[in-house]
Design a protein around this nucleic acid. Structure first.
Lengths: 197, 197
DNA sequence: TAATTTATTGAACGAAGTGTTCAACAGCAA
DNA sequence: TTGCTGTTGAACACTTCGTTCAATAAATTA
């Protein structure tokens, strides 16, 4: 085990951080994300990431003694999902958010991130908080759109159906859903809500 | 690389297979599933599985030269999903199938299997066919239930919403959906379909 | 500027794991 | 019994892992 405390630990205190530390964090975490998305979690080792970042293995160990620390901080770098901005029209907002979520899954490889989190966060408890953050962020706008029109179990069901349909299609269905399927999903939710009245 | 051809390859030809081979296949694949579900895919190594099966490492290499072969055959042992038997009542059939699927995900750990497949089948093309088999089997009854009432993009959307909601809730949502949420999902689909008329 | 502090580095290590060979053994079939 | 073949433990070269350490390079401080 590496016993030395990580350098520049006082970053959050507002204290100055050595420029070398900032550079190292930047390049190593960036490389860790690259390795993760290209080769999967079990290739994200200290040595492999160090090679990708063109720095010493010891430096990586110094900053992130455990492999899971590296993964946690690497995920923190994966930008938040770019959401649709609701305009107040239920159907249009649902379609807009579904498209934005599809973009995040496919273009920004959020699907890979979620797959790793689903697969590992049972065995690695340190990842549970990370998973919860990603899920909460991914559901944020959908929940806001649905809030005025659905509550309780119905609300939960709709969130799971909307986001679940997207993640399921992309990660397990082989191909991302086309615009026609997205429209059909939004239509179904709108129709289900209209039958409330 | 192990060059010797796997023993007892002619099993499917109806030729007699050495009893030792049958025993080895049984115990090793069973142990591989155990290791996979308990410790995750990257712990499913020849040596680890051999230790769990109390047999020689060489035996495992002989039967399954590549790690992915072991995974493929191990998944073949994970029983097919136990489905609900449709009775012709749309809502009751949907609820019944959702409950059966939840049982498969939670009790038989289908969630772990799907998580591994979602995570690895991009990097391991040999797993794509396995993933497709599991997805097709998981969707079989839902598709049959929906067939008379929805087609095209709407059909695809409903399948993705129903199965997606389940997988998403169990794998990423932290807790399996309660009966009230299952009811709400079925209600939503029924309402959406009724608005077709 | 020079002096001081500290992050980074390459080399090296023991320990553990991987993929393989091989001679010996044990169980099955004839 | 005899032959055949699946299984086994030992041993191997090789790679990877986690770590130590003295040397170096770069940053901060005076």
């Amino acid at each position: 085990m590496v016993t030395a405390k990580p350098p520049g630990t006082s970053a959050t205190d507002g204290a100055r951080v050595d420029a070398r530390v900032l550079r190292t964090r930047e390049v190593v975490l960036s490389s860790a994300v690259d390795v993760l998305l290209e080769h999967g979690w079990d290739q994200v080792t200290h040595a492999r990431v160090a090679r990708a970042a063109r720095c010493s293995k010891v430096t990586v160990y110094t900053h992130w003694p455990e492999r899971v620390d590296l993964l946690r901080d690497a995920f923190a770098r994966v930008g938040d999902v770019v959401h649709h901005e609701p305009i107040g029209d239920l159907r249009a907002d649902l379609v807009g958010e579904l498209r934005a979520f599809r973009t995040a899954l496919v273009e920004h490889r959020l699907d890979r991130v979620l797959a790793v989190l689903a697969d590992r966060s049972e065995a690695l408890p340190e990842l549970r908080a990370v998973r919860e953050r990603f899920v909460a962020d991914g559901e944020r706008v959908v929940r806001r759109i649905l809030e005025p029109v659905a509550a309780g179990a119905q609300h939960e069901a709709m969130v799971a159906m909307l986001n679940g349909a997207m993640v399921y299609s992309v990660s397990l269905g082989g191909a991302p859903p086309g615009d026609d399927v997205l429209d059909a999903i939004a239509d179904a939710v709108v129709a289900a809500l209209e039958s409330n009245a």
